[in-house]
C-alpha cells in the first residue's frame, strides 16, 4: 500500500506508544489487538527504531497482516489488520 492509502485508513484502534522504548510499543500492540475484531485495522505510533522491525515480524507470527509503515517526523505509524 502507498503512504497515502495507509494514511487514509481508519484504525479501529490507534496505539500511541511514542513515549516508550522497546519493548513498550510491542506490548502495547499485543494488548490492544485483543480489543479489536478480526479484519479491523490497528495503527501503532512509535518512535522506537527496534519496534519498526519487531511489530511486522510479530504480526506475521501471530497471523495478522502487516499493511505498511509511514515515516513521520520523529516517529512512524505502523498499520496492521487483525487476522
Amino acid at each position: 500500500m502507498t503512504n497515502e492509502e495507509l494514511l487514509a485508513l481508519t484504525g479501529a484502534k490507534v496505539v500511541d506508544a511514542r513515549g516508550t522504548a522497546c519493548p513498550g510499543p510491542l506490548l502495547e500492540a499485543k494488548k490492544a489487538i485483543g480489543t479489536i475484531n478480526t479484519g479491523d485495522i490497528m495503527e501503532v505510533m512509535s518512535a522506537d527504531e527496534g519496534t519498526k522491525r519487531d511489530i511486522p515480524k510479530w504480526a506475521e507470527k501471530k497471523g495478522h497482516e502487516y499493511l505498511g509503515t509511514v515515516e513521520e517526523s520523529g516517529f512512524f505509524r505502523i498499520y496492521l489488520k487483525k487476522g
Partner: peptide
C-alpha cells in the same frame, strides 16, 4: 524483564 516482554508478545 525485556526478554519476558518478547515472550509475552509471542504468547
Amino acid at each position: 524483564g525485556v526478554m519476558l516482554s518478547g515472550a509475552a508478545a509471542d504468547d
